[in-house]
Design a protein around this nucleic acid. Structure first.
Lengths: 126, 126
DNA sequence: TCATTATATAATAGAATGGGTATATAATGT
DNA sequence: ACATTATATACCCATTCTATTATATAATGA
């Protein structure tokens, strides 16, 4: 019932830390358009340097938010679902608490579907 | 279509940065049980020091994840929906991209409801 | 008023982060 | 083999984070 996660580099921390940087979110947004090699991301993120982009890609990859595949001398970057699923899971664990019933109804009306109508009632683990 | 957010301290960055720390996520999980004063959180997060907890509370409050209300000499902390909504919104913007149709169907089956069936198709702004 | 309780702030140390330039490695084409 | 292209790594600097101890402020009760 009470949280116990203490390690500062667990999966969830790595994902949220990766998402906390606007440049890295720009990378993810770019990859929403389509997978692309590092160089294309360097162009889009100018004037950020190429080593800067590469380092951000490492952070995103370790967080499970992207994947890099060697293809010739390029490395094609694309979104990887694990990191996103981690955020989605954490949010789902808290959804029953952060919004009251009225808020959930409002969101439901606005988005045309219910939010976790069968969510469990215990406090999340983390 | 292409992202443009550069300020390192925009709302979303503050929320994700706040969530990147396990101690702060423990605070949120504790507040899922019920609102409580700072001292109760200090007890739960032991051996973290009281000033340490207070600083984490400041980070969470600035991120819109909690609210503090003075009540006598205590300050009652409770979850605040804005920060959670920010995460939910960001995730919704990306949901169409990070999981393929099959994954979304699986999640739908598991959670008993569709995931944003009417999500727009353009790349998110950030 | 005075002591106590609850929380916040100041001062500081150490680790992590983000950025740059320079350089190394790897793959390709001539 | 050699030059070129694509990406990664090394190194350095400045800033930001987390945590601690010591101290200050605010509210309560005797």
């Amino acid at each position: 019932m009470t949280p116990n996660s203490l390690s500062p580099s667990d999966d969830l921390s790595a994902v949220f830390a990766a998402l906390a940087d606007p440049q890295r979110r720009r990378i993810l947004a770019a990859l929403c358009d389509q997978p692309m090699p590092v160089g294309a991301l360097v162009d889009r993120l100018a004037p950020l340097s190429q080593p800067g982009v590469t380092r951000h890609l490492g952070v995103l990859e370790r967080a499970g938010l992207i994947r890099r595949e060697a293809q010739g001398r390029q490395r094609i970057c694309q979104l990887e679902h694990m990191g996103f699923a981690a955020v989605d899971g954490w949010l789902a664990e808290h959804r029953a608490f952060w919004a009251g019933a009225l808020d959930r109804l409002a969101a439901m009306a606005e988005r045309g579907q219910p939010n976790h109508p069968d969510a469990p009632e215990g406090a999340p683990d983390d």
